[in-house]
Design a protein around this nucleic acid. Sequence first.
DNA 1: CGTTCGATTGAGGAAGATCAATTAATGTGG
DNA 2: CCACATTAATTGATCTTCCTCAATCGAACG
Lengths: 246, 246
Amino acid sequence: MHTLARPFTPDRPATPAPSRQISDTLDLLGEQFDPKRRVVHAGDAIYRAGERFGNLYILNSGLCKIVSLAADGREQLVSLNFRGDWLGFDGIADGYHSSDAIAMDTGEVWAVPYLALMDASKGCPAVLHALHAAMSQAIARDHGSLMSVCTLPAVARVADFLLNWASSLAQRGIRTDQITLRMTRAEIGNHLGMTLESVSRALSRLARDHVIGFTEQGRRDIQIPDLSALSAFVQRHLAPAPVTLQ
Amino acid sequence: MHTLARPFTPDRPATPAPSRQISDTLDLLGEQFDPKRRVVHAGDAIYRAGERFGNLYILNSGLCKIVSLAADGREQLVSLNFRGDWLGFDGIADGYHSSDAIAMDTGEVWAVPYLALMDASKGCPAVLHALHAAMSQAIARDHGSLMSVCTLPAVARVADFLLNWASSLAQRGIRTDQITLRMTRAEIGNHLGMTLESVSRALSRLARDHVIGFTEQGRRDIQIPDLSALSAFVQRHLAPAPVTLQ
DNA sequence: CGTTCGATTGAGGAAGATCAATTAATGTGG
DNA sequence: CCACATTAATTGATCTTCCTCAATCGAACG
C-alpha cells in the first residue's frame, strides 16, 4: 500500500525481495498441501456469495476480482488480486461466503481446505504466519481503498488506482512501465466510486498531462513512463481542504 | 454487516446468540492468556502507526476508532470497534502498525502477545478460530464500508452508518432504540467520505422524516424508533442508476 | 459568565453525474 | 477475410449533488 504512511521506521530488519516472498510462500503451500489446482478463465467463479465456506484459495497465476453483493442488488468490486494472493477470507467468520470471486483472466487457482490448513499449522508455524500476513495485507489494502475513495477527487483516485496496480506488479517482479488493465471503465468506476465517464475523462486527463500514455492497440494497455510523476500528480490533486480529524 | 447479502442460506446450523459468542470468546481469551488489562480513556492511543507490532488487542469494553494515515498527511477513520472486537491486525503483515487505534470512551483493553497466541493455538484450536473469525469479520466490515461509500448518496450513507452502529449494539445485546454517538460530525464525515455539514444536513433530514429522533439533551444521542424504517429509508434513497458490473 | 468548540442552516459554486451522440474495438456469420 | 452487429470508450452539454464559505446558535467548561 504505497499510500499508507509509516511515519517512523526504526531498525527494520532486512527483508527479502517481495517477489521472493511470494514465490516462497507459494512453494511452501505447494509442498505442504498438494493443493487442488484448477485452471480458470475470464469470468469463471472461484466461489460465490452464499456458498458454504470450506476452502481458502491461492492465486498461482492470473487476475481475480472480489465482488461484494448487497441484499438490494448493489454490487461492489472490493478488491483485485494477483499471483500469490489468498482468496476466501470472507467466509471464515460465519461459514458462508458473502462475495463472489471472479477470474478476470486465464490463470490457476489452488484450493486448500481450511481445516487442513489449521491441522498443518500446528506443525508448521510458517504456514500459519503466511495466512495471517495475507489477511493482514488484505485489511491494509481495504483501508487504502477506503482512504482513496474518501479523500481523493476523481482524477487522483484513478491515478492512485494505477499506482496501486503498478505496485502490485512491482512486488511480483513484473515491469510496471506498461500495464494491461483487464477491466472495463465501468468496473474501474465501480471500484472507485465513480461513473465510467469520469474514469474515461480521468484517463484522458492523465494522458494529456503525460503522466500516462496509451499504446497504439487499444486503450486497455496503459504506459506509465514514470511512477514518481504519477505519484506527484496525486499529490498535486489532493482535495484542497481535506476532512481532518480533531 | 446488514448490507451484505447471503442470497442462499441452506441448512445453516443453529448458532448461539451473537452476544453469547462475544462473551464466550472473551471468557476463553481471559482464561487462556491472562492478558494484560489496561484501562483507557477517550483519546488514549492503544497503538500508533509506526510502532513495532507485537500484541493483538481485544476491547473488553468501551469504543475505539482505527485511523489510517497516509504519507502526505491524509487521515481516514477506517473502522469503529466495540466490546469483543480485536485490534491490531494491520501490524501482522510487515511487523509495524500502519494505523492508530484510539479509544473514544473509557474502556478496558486486553493485550495479548501475538506469539503467545500462536503458541497457545496449537493446543487450543478455538482460540485460533476466534482470531480468524475476527479478522474475517473485519474484512467483511471493510467491504461494507467501501460499498456504502461507493454506492450510496450522502443521506443514505449516514442512515446506513447508523444502521451498522445499531447492528453492532444488537449483536452485543444492547438496546438500539437510543444510541449515543461518541463522535463529532467531522469524524463521521471523515469515515463516510463527506463534509461535516453534509452529515449535519443528513441527520436533520432523517429527523424531519421521523426515521430518527434527537433527545432533548444534545444531538449526540440519537433515537431510532424503528430500525426497519431506517433501513427502508436507505432503500428509498439508493442512487437511481447504480454503477453495475457486467 | 464569557470563551471555545461543535452543530446547524443558508447561499453560492464546483465536481462529478446524467443524458446523448459519436467513435473505436471486438466478435460473428457468411 | 470482410460486412455487420455488438459492446466498450470517448467526448460534449446540461443538471444535480455536495462542497465551500459564512453566519448563527447551542453546549460545555474553566
